[in-house]
Amino acid sequence: MPINTILCDIDGSLMRPSSGLYVDEEIAQKIIALEEKGMLVILNSARALSGVLPLSRQLKMDHFGGYVISCNGANIKDAKTNHTLFEYAIKQEDALDIWHTILNHQLIPGILQPDHMLALKMTEGYELDAKNCHIAYNLTKQPEESLKQAVWKCTASGTKADIDRVIFSLKEDLEKRFPVKVVRSTDTFVDIIDINVDKFRSSNQLLRQLYKSWDEVSAIGDGLADLECMKAASYAVAPANAQLAVLKVADQILPSCDENGCLVWLDELLRK
């Protein structure tokens, strides 16, 4: 079955991690050329929605159609109609308990709602998130006063050394007490999402809703969160900077994201 859909991780795959809202223009033009030929584009990211929608517009997905999966699968939106197809939220009372649990592990807690992030204070990880996801941060010691919307994810941030020291105990503590899963997204940033959420489940649900199979999909990814999508896709590619487990399942290893290695993949798709 011919490939007619590309599933794209963003940070570490289409661009260098934490390098802003937009991909290099050469990459954008290649993806637009694929869309002009009928390719469906799905962006599949750990970023907050506000960090993915600007990229979808750069890629003209609001014109051609396409889908945005954000927060590691917590929200799925139609890029053309701006309609939310489905979302998975954490209960507000659980989010508050998770906040205090993160504090007990000496990390800085955060709670993501649709239009802003609550955080105790800014960290390097949160500074990068604010920049890359173009999201407003509300700093507070009393999150319950601002918790008025759906909770798409909770977060924990700190230095790499801080997170290295507590990540396993934090993960065990949270996953034992709450219906969540803990995903380390970067060296300085941890995502806590609903237990039913991950990139593969949300991608699979979207494809089923679109009456598509994985045989029609080519996927690019670099992290463990991308692994199951890579295994399921008809053709999977990974940049050289990807984690070892991802490199092992890739059908093709590209130059690193620092070298815009995804261009090799996009050129192959255009030729085919």
Rank of each mutant, 00 (worst) to 15 (best):
M61S: 09
H83T: 14
K80F: 00
Q58E: 11
K80E: 01
H83N: 13
L85K: 02
D78P: 07
A74S: 14
N82R: 14
N82E: 15
F64R: 02
I90Q: 05
S70G: 09
I76F: 05
E87R: 12
E87F: 13
E87V: 01
T81I: 10
F64W: 11
D78I: 09
K77G: 00
T81M: 11
L59Q: 11
F86E: 12
G66C: 08
T81F: 12
G73N: 11
I90W: 09
E87K: 15
Y67R: 05
N75V: 15
D78R: 05
Q58D: 05
H63N: 10
D78V: 10
A79D: 08
N72M: 00
L59P: 10
Y67Q: 03
C71G: 11
G65V: 06
A79R: 06
H63Q: 15
S70W: 08
A74V: 00
T84S: 14
H83R: 10
G66L: 09
A89Y: 12
M61H: 06
Y67P: 05
D62A: 01
K77D: 02
K77I: 15
I90K: 06
N82C: 13
G65S: 03
G65R: 03
K77E: 11
A74K: 07
K77S: 10
V68P: 03
E87T: 12
I69M: 13
K80S: 01
I90F: 03
N75W: 05
K80W: 00
D62F: 02
A79W: 04
Y67L: 01
N75T: 14
Q58R: 02
M61N: 06
A89E: 14
I69T: 04
G66D: 13
F64G: 02
D62S: 01
A89Q: 12
H63Y: 14
K77W: 06
L59C: 06
N72E: 06
L85W: 02
M61I: 07
L59A: 07
M61K: 07
G73V: 09
H63K: 14
A79G: 11
K80G: 00
T81V: 10
A74L: 06
N72C: 05
G65H: 07
D62T: 05
L59G: 03
T84E: 14
S70H: 04
K60Q: 15
T84P: 01
K77Y: 10
Q58M: 09
L59T: 08
N72F: 04
F86L: 12
Y67H: 08
Q58K: 06
H83K: 13
A79N: 02
F64I: 08
E87Y: 13
H83Q: 14
N72S: 10
